[in-house]
Amino acid sequence: MRATSRRLLSCLTALVLVAGGLLAVAPTASADVTYVPENWNGKVVYLSQACHDRGDTICRTNTGCRGFSENGNSYKVAVSAATQYDPEHMNLLERGYKVVRGNGLTRTNIANSNRAGADLHLPIHSNAVSNACEKGHSPERYGTHVMYVSKAGKECAGIMRWRVGASSPGTNDARQYRTDLGELNQTNAVACYLEQEYHVWDQGVSWMLDRGAWTWRIALSVDVFLGYP
């Protein structure tokens, strides 16, 4: 199936499920989108787009070099990881996963992930060490960080750090134990929280914007962690 159905699946972006039950009105966000593969492997991956709502009803974004938007990039990375066609690498749909893309408030994404029965909850973010576009620092200041709270989340974070971090320009790749994030503590699914790179240096932004070259690594990491179901 993987060899013969790749082009069909990569073009499959029909929305077959709209999740309801929003906990609050979010003017800058809309309902979840679900992508169903032709041959489902029984696993659900919830890609939670960045929404810095600060406990209210509006999704704000963080900005970086050249006007980079963390929220806008998060949306594009989620779509790419789910559906991007690459002649040499498979996306999540091609690997047989049902993908739910959450683009609401943080607490809404948590509730919808639990409602969807997700097997893996993956928030997609980018990182910062300041509020400015930095100049003159070495790559050791930046890199791919993946956060976790559970034992299984630690395993997922390690796989993601290694496979995504191998492509990112920063060299300070790490997995981090965190206990203060709702998307790690409040999901029924195993959660690992991806900070792709830092958006406060130009090389990091350039890499993140070249999504077609690396988002397949997210799909591969998921497949490795879940055991190629």
Score class of each variant (00 low, 15 high):
Tyr85Pro: 01
His121Gly: 02
Gly20Asn: 08
Ala152Gly: 12
Leu9Pro: 03
His145Trp: 14
Val205Ser: 04
Val33Phe: 03
Val205Met: 05
Pro169Arg: 07
Pro87Lys: 14
Glu183Phe: 06
Asp173Pro: 10
Leu120Val: 07
Arg2Thr: 13
Ser168Asp: 06
Val77Lys: 04
Tyr142Asp: 00
Asp223Arg: 04
Thr34His: 03
Asn109His: 01
Leu15Thr: 12
Thr83Arg: 06
Asn172Met: 02
Gly227Glu: 13
Asn185Tyr: 08
Ala118Asn: 00
Ala78Pro: 00
His145Phe: 11
His145Met: 15
Met147Gly: 00
Ala81Asn: 01
Leu226Val: 11
Arg54Ser: 12
Met147Trp: 03
Asn188Met: 13
Ser130Val: 06
Ile58Val: 15
Ala132His: 13
Gln196Val: 15
Asn127Val: 08
Ala19Val: 14
Gly104Gln: 07
Gly143Tyr: 00
Val45Tyr: 03
Ser5Met: 09
Val25Glu: 12
His137Met: 14
Lys43Ser: 07
Leu47Arg: 04
Tyr75Thr: 14
Val146Tyr: 00
Asn114Met: 10
Ser30Gln: 14
Glu70Pro: 05
Asn114Arg: 13
Val18His: 14
Val146Phe: 02
Val44Met: 11
Thr28Gln: 09
Arg95Met: 06
Asp210Lys: 06
Asp210Gln: 10
Asp32Ala: 01
Thr63Trp: 12
Val79Tyr: 05
Cys65Val: 11
Gly204Ile: 03
Arg60Thr: 12
Ala191Val: 09
Ala189Val: 04
Val77Gly: 03
Gly20Met: 06
Glu140His: 01
Gly212Leu: 11
Thr179Asp: 14
Pro229His: 04
Gly20Thr: 11
Ser30Glu: 10
Lys43Ile: 07
Glu94Ala: 04
Thr179Tyr: 11
Met147Glu: 03
Tyr228Arg: 15
Thr215Ser: 04
Lys135Leu: 13
Leu93Cys: 04
Tyr193Lys: 10
Arg161Ile: 03
Ala116Tyr: 05
Ser69Arg: 05
Asp119Gly: 13
Asn109Ala: 02
Asn39Cys: 08
Ile124Thr: 06
Arg95Val: 05
Ala166Cys: 07
Lys135Arg: 15
Thr179Ser: 15
Arg60Gln: 10
Ala82Tyr: 01
Val45Arg: 00
Tyr75Pro: 09
Ala3Ile: 01
Arg115Ser: 10
Arg54Lys: 12
Ala26Arg: 14
Leu15Ala: 10
Ser5Ala: 09
Tyr193Val: 07
Ser30Leu: 12
Gln176Gly: 05
Leu184Pro: 08
Arg161Pro: 04
Thr171Gly: 02
Tyr177Ile: 13
Tyr75Gln: 14
Thr34Tyr: 03
Trp40Met: 02
Asn112Phe: 00
Val149Leu: 02
Leu15Asn: 14
Ser5Phe: 05
Cys11Asn: 01
Asn41Phe: 05
Asn91Ala: 12
Cys51Ser: 10
Tyr228Glu: 11
Asn114Gln: 12
